[in-house]
Write a protein that binds this DNA or RNA. Structure first.
Lengths: 160, 160
DNA sequence: GTCTTTCTACTCGGATACATCGTGTCCGAGTTGGCTGGG
DNA sequence: CCCAGCCAACTCGGACACGATGTATCCGAGTAGAAAGAC
C-alpha cells in the first residue's frame, strides 16, 4: 500500500503558490522547475486540484494556477482526496458470505462485517488526523524550520 | 491508494483458524474452499503470515496451518504489516531540496520536512488504531452478529 | 500379531506468467498579450 | 498620438504509451501416514 507521490507534489505546490503570492498565477512549467519535476505529469496532478476546487487555473499567456482559498481552509484530507480519489483503502469484498457462510441465514449478515468495521475504524482515525491539519499548519512548521523560505523562493523565481 | 485484498483474506483466515480449533491444522485447500478463493494465491498470503510469526505451518499429509498464538495477542497491525510490508504509505522524496531549494543552506533542512511530518502524524494515528484492536476484539464483534458462527463453520467443514 | 520398510499421496514453498494501476509523455483547443497598421 | 485588428506565443486540458506492483498460477522438494511384507 503505497500512496501516490502526486500527493507530496501537490502539497508542496500549494505551499509554493502561497509563498509566491496571489498577484499573478504560476504556470506548470515554472512550478515543475521549482521542484525539478516532469512538467506534463505535474500538470496532471494540478488538474486534479482544480477539479477538487482547491486551485483555479487561468489559460493564455501569463496564465497558470492560483489557490482557490487560503491555506487555513485547505486540509491535508482535501489534497489526499483530490489526488488519490474518494475510495477507501480497505475494500470489503464480503467473503464472509461465500463458501462456509453461503448457507447462513440472511440475519447473520444484517450488521456490517466485523473485519471491515475494525479496518474502517482505523482508517477513520487516519482521515480525521488528515482533516485536523490545515496547510497553514504545515506552512507554519516549514517556516519554523527555515524562516525566510518564502522570501527565498520568490528571489529564486525572480532570477529563473 | 488501495490496500491489498490479501489483508482481508488473512484476517478472515485467522478467525477461521481460531474457530476450527487447535487440535488439527487446516490446509490451504480447505481454507480456500471455505471462502471460495484461489488456493495458490491464498497460500502465498498464508506464507506471509508464517514469515511474520503469526501462523505456523506443518508439512506432509494432514498438514496445514495453525495460529502461532491466541487471537488476544494478534493485532490488526500485525496482519497488515505481514501482508503489506513494513514501508510507510507516504514516502518523502525530499523534493524541498531540489530546484528552488537547491541553493539553500544545509541548516534549512536540519529538521524533517514539514509535509512529511504532517503526513506521518496521520499515518501514526492509523497504525495506532490498528495496533489497539486485537483479532479477539474482531472475533467478539463477529460473534455478536452471528453467535453460532464457530459451530456453523465446524459443521460446514465436517461435511465438505 | 508386531515391527520394519517402502511407497504413495498430500502438504508447503518458491519461482514463474498475466492484469491492472500508477507513472510519464505528447499534442491539440483556447486565451491572452503584444505588435502593427490605420485614423 | 490613439485605437482597432491581427498575429503569434504561451497556457491548460485531455488523450496516448511505458513500467512497476499486485494478482493469479504452476510445479518441485519434503514429510507424514498408510499399507505391505517379513519375523
Amino acid at each position: 500500500m503505497r500512496m501516490s507521490e502526486g500527493v507530496e507534489w501537490a502539497v508542496h505546490c500549494c505551499l509554493l503558490l502561497d509563498w509566491m503570492g496571489e498577484d499573478r498565477p504560476v504556470s506548470t512549467t515554472r512550478l515543475a522547475a521549482g521542484f525539478e519535476l516532469p512538467p506534463p505529469y505535474l500538470n496532471k496532478q494540478l488538474q486534479a486540484l482544480v477539479r477538487a476546487g482547491i486551485a483555479t487555473s487561468t489559460a493564455g499567456a501569463r496564465g497558470g494556477f492560483r489557490l482557490a482559498r487560503p491555506l487555513e481552509r485547505i486540509t491535508l484530507m482535501d489534497v489526499v482526496a483530490a489526488i488519490e480519489g474518494p475510495d477507501d483503502a480497505f475494500q470489503c469484498t464480503e467473503i464472509r458470505r461465500r463458501g462456509a457462510g453461503a448457507d447462513s441465514p440472511e440475519s447473520a449478515f444484517a450488521r456490517p462485517c466485523a473485519v471491515f468495521s475494525a479496518m474502517h475504524r482505523a482508517e477513520l482515525a487516519w482521515r480525521r488526523a488528515l482533516a485536523d491539519q490545515t496547510l497553514a499548519d504545515v506552512r507554519a512548521n516549514a517556516e519554523r524550520n527555515a524562516p525566510r523560505v518564502g522570501e527565498h523562493v520568490r528571489a529564486w523565481y525572480a532570477r529563473n
